[in-house]
């Protein structure tokens, strides 16, 4: 499995876990196209915060190094890494390969 695939799997698993906690009416379709932030966001702000914090822990454990997704590096980018699963995956891979 490539790093891209591993990261994608971790994000989708975390999103699925989050989804399990939602009421039936709030459940979302989880895929690489799932919108996380912005006007099209399919999850609310607090769910996004929970997801990102959970991902930081899981990614740090998996790759045996501290992965910080919420610092000012992420916030100063022109396009938010949190826009959808794909952009988040790309950002994580970028951090891992930097």
């Amino acid at each position: 499995m490539t790093v891209h695939e591993e990261v994608e799997q971790i994000i989708l698993n975390a999103l699925n876990t989050l989804n399990e906690g939602f009421n039936d009416a709030d459940k979302i379709t989880v895929s690489t196209d799932t919108y996380l932030f912005g006007k099209k966001a399919q999850i609310d702000s607090l769910s996004l915060v929970s997801l990102i914090v959970e991902l930081e822990e899981q990614l740090s454990e998996k790759f045996n190094r501290e992965i910080v997704l919420t610092d000012d590096r992420a916030m100063t980018r022109e396009k938010s890494p949190f826009y959808n699963v794909q952009s988040l995956k790309d950002y994580v891979v970028e951090l891992l390969t930097a």
Binding site: V68, L69, T70, D71, D72, M75
Partner: peptide, 19 residues
Amino acid sequence: LKICNSSNFLLKVLKTGLT
């Protein structure tokens, strides 16, 4: 320290319009 460093992330996702 980590929460402090996440301030702009939280401000953004909570839609405060502030940094």
